[in-house]
Structures are given as C-alpha cells and as structure tokens.
Amino acid sequence: MIETVFSAELPVGEHLLIQKNRIVGTGGPGPRIAIVTGVHGDELEGQYVAFELARRLKSALHLLSGTVDIYPAVNPLGINSIQRGMPLFDLDLNRTFPGNGNGPMAETMTAAVMDDIRGADVCVDIHASNIFLREMPQVRINELSADQLVPLAPLLNVDFVWVHASATVLESTLAYSLNSAGTPTLVVEAGVGMRITEEYGRRLTDGILRLAAHLGAWKGDFYSAPEPIVSHDGEVSYLNAEHAGIFLPRAKHATVLHEGEVVGIIADPLSGDVVEEVRSPRAGLLFTLRAYPIVYPGSLLARILGDIQ
C-alpha cells in the first residue's frame, strides 16, 4: 500500500511528497524492515533495488511474515531534477538528521522520515557513491555501532564491510540518528551516481531478503554471496590527484593490484602531456575508482584496501 510519509505545499499548485510502499506479508506477524534510498538525488542504484524488492515481495506475500517498508525517494525533488542535494537550498539532506518538526522545511521533512522509520527492527539505507566514483558493494559502519552491525552486514551480499572512525560531522546522517535512536541501520554504498548497475542491484535485493530471512521474516529463496572482507580505516589508502586534467583509468575496478601498479594517468588535453602517473602505494583491492574524468588537485581517484588475502 502506498502511504505518504510527509507532505508540504510548494508555492504553485504542487506538494512535495515523500512516499513509501508498505508491504505486509500474509505469512503472519513478524518484524518491520525499512529500506530507504534516494537521500542523495544523484544516486540511483537504490531505485532498482526498491523496484526489484517490491516486485519480488508482492509476488510471494505468503512467504513474508511481517512488514517491509520501502522508501524510494527521501529527496524526491533532487532525484526528479538530477541534484544531489535538496533543490532551492543545495542542502545535503544527510546533514540534517534527525531533523526538527518545528524547524525549516528540510528539517521538518527529515524529522518526519525519522519518526516513520524509528522503531523498525532493522533499516538499510542504500547509497550509490556519487557521480565521481564507482564503488564495489560495501556496507559502511560507524565504529560506535560496530558491535551490533558488523554481524548483520555480511547478510547483505556485499563485497566488504568498512568500519570507519566516528566523526562529529557525521552525527547528522540518517544512519547515525537511527542507530542512536535504537533502530539498527546499515549503510550500503554501491555502484556510481546517475547510473544503475543491475548486477549490484540484484545482489543487494537478494541480500535484503537474506537479512529478512535471518530475522525470520522471509521464507523464500535468496542468493548468498561469499563472506565479505571486514576492514578498518587503517587498511584503506586514498589516492588523490595532484594535478588538474583528465583522469584515464589504467587498472580495472574491483581487481587486486600489486604495489606500484599504475592505477591511471592524468592527461592535459591542451598540451598533450601526461602530467601525472598514479600508482598504487600498496598491494590491495581497488574498491573505489574514479568514473568522472575531469580532476582538480585533490580529486579522489581511487581507494585501495590493503592487507587482504
């Protein structure tokens, strides 16, 4: 059943609507699982998961015990107009949680989303990197909630689980706010902005069903991926550009590199010179690779996970 989570009147004959699809199984009572995506309007990988999950659940309601709430678009205006943030304010909604019901519109909106999800047995917040970087499917976990979330993360069929240090500025994300409110929330990053990678989407959809099965909510089939790598910050190397130009990758995403291997080059289209050759500082897995060619000094080009077997 389609329900409206939040509605606000826009100036001229329109409402901003956040909607969810509430799918209630006929297999009896069970947990409530919330699947959220579209907090960032330029990340679309989760749109496929929302579609595919709803399609599969609706075709087998008798195998579902409990409720799955699917929120495809927390930032509907952004998705609609190809903007990462909320239009008008250029506001990153993932810096406005837990929101404030008496605050400005964006915070009123995020408070309504929080209130609607709060109390779910588990929540999965699906992101798709941004338009610049392609990511292998991964779960990112704040070290503060690692004890509770690390055991759940492998169920989502991701390639690896990244436990990262907590930062004050990240306290205003949906995941942090929900975890603080006692709703275990896993953040998935997969794919690249403005594109849909169906293979990743299918794996994640199966992963969500696997998680549901773990919670006793799903009795149907699902695919189980091999056990992911669990890593910490110290094992991740960042490669940033030192020169402006166009980045041309020379290594393949999602492969293991040896130390010193060329990840890519930065070329200058005006002079015809290669201005930088980017090499891997360590042996490891190339889990993040730049997809958008234009780079500035500082632009992230790649992330490499070391110490893997």
Partner: peptide, 19 residues
C-alpha cells in the same frame, strides 16, 4: 564541481579533497 561548502571543511587537509 561537487557542491561542497568550504565553510564545512575546516581546519582543512592539504593532502585531501579539493575543498
């Protein structure tokens, strides 16, 4: 490029992202 806010980047990091 990425719609980041320089006034959300302090104290900054000279080997980090552009902003």
């Amino acid at each position: 490029v990425d719609h980041t806010d320089i006034n959300r980047m302090f104290p900054g990091y000279d080997a980090g992202e552009t902003t």
